[in-house]
């Protein structure tokens, strides 16, 4: 599904990723853990196509195609979805308007027919229902005045509607209470399938109790320094990141 080879990235002359390698297979849920400043969020932005970064070397292949050549919207249409750590507020753009614009734009980019309004409404209603998102929230400006938990649920709603094949969850657990964490995790688990992979970025093992990963990768100093199964997360929780902070230095 996704293969990252020897990725070197800097921002404003500061090196963030130092030859990162990572492979996520079809249907795999890969967790990325690591201390603050290890480059986790940078990795998610670089995969999604944020322009602030300078890519010195390396490749990111989605089903064999190098996405680094693609605009962010083309990457989205190709199936990459980033659930933001801090979803942005867009005053004046009703959530429904935004959802429809995004869905139609992706369908258009893929050469698919426009979704009828009735079908669009049905899908939104179904998915919003699963996530406990009330209808009046969908009429408000996107994320405007939403709580942290509501914003994260809105990200998962977008993910469910856009049906991407590669989903990145950037610290989706931050700022969530236990109830919201359950709702969001259930939303993610519902989307798991053999044709869809996930990159779950988190500081804490807690999220991985709900979204159980197939693989766990530890990031430090812009590299993946250790990979293992889900038990690696428990080990990190017990011992902390101290061992890894010096490992790649």
């Amino acid at each position: 599904m996704l293969e990252i080879r020897n990725l070197h990235v800097s921002i404003e002359d500061k090196k963030i990723l130092n030859g990162l390698n990572l492979t996520v297979h079809d249907g795999e849920v890969a967790a990325i853990m690591g201390p603050n400043g290890s480059g986790k969020s940078t990795l998610s932005y670089v995969i999604a196509g944020k322009e602030d970064y300078e890519i010195h070397d390396g490749e990111i292949l989605l089903d064999g195609e190098n996405v680094l050549e693609m605009e962010p919207d083309a990457r989205a249409a190709a199936g990459i979805f980033l659930a933001f750590q801090y979803p942005l507020e867009i005053p004046g753009v009703a959530t429904m308007t935004f959802l429809k614009a995004a869905m139609q734009a992706q369908r258009k980019a893929r050469g698919e027919d426009e979704l009828s309004t009735a079908e669009f409404m049905k899908r939104v209603r179904d998915q919003a229902g699963h996530l406990g998102i009330p209808q009046d929230m969908l009429k408000r400006g996107l994320n405007v005045g939403f709580s942290g938990g509501e914003k994260k649920r809105m990200e998962i709603l977008q993910m469910a509607l856009l049906e991407p094949k590669f989903c990145i969850l950037d610290e989706t657990d931050s700022g969530l209470d236990i109830d919201a964490l359950k709702i969001v995790s259930e939303g993610v688990n519902r989307l798991r399938g053999k044709d869809r992979s996930f990159l779950v970025i988190t500081h804490y093992q807690r999220l991985l109790n709900y979204i159980v990963p197939d693989t766990v990768h530890v990031m430090a100093h812009g590299q993946v320094v250790k990979s293992g199964g889900k038990e690696l997360a428990l080990e990190l929780e017990a011992n902390g990141y101290a061992d890894y902070k010096t490992l790649a230095a």
């Binding site: 999604a48 196509g49 605009e71 919207d73 979803p87 942005l88 995004a102 869905m103 734009a105 980019a109």
Partner: peptide, 11 residues
């Protein structure tokens, strides 16, 4: 904001 919208597929 522009990136957020583009990351959702809007050209």
């Amino acid at each position: 904001l522009l990136f957020y919208l583009r990351a959702r597929g809007l050209p």
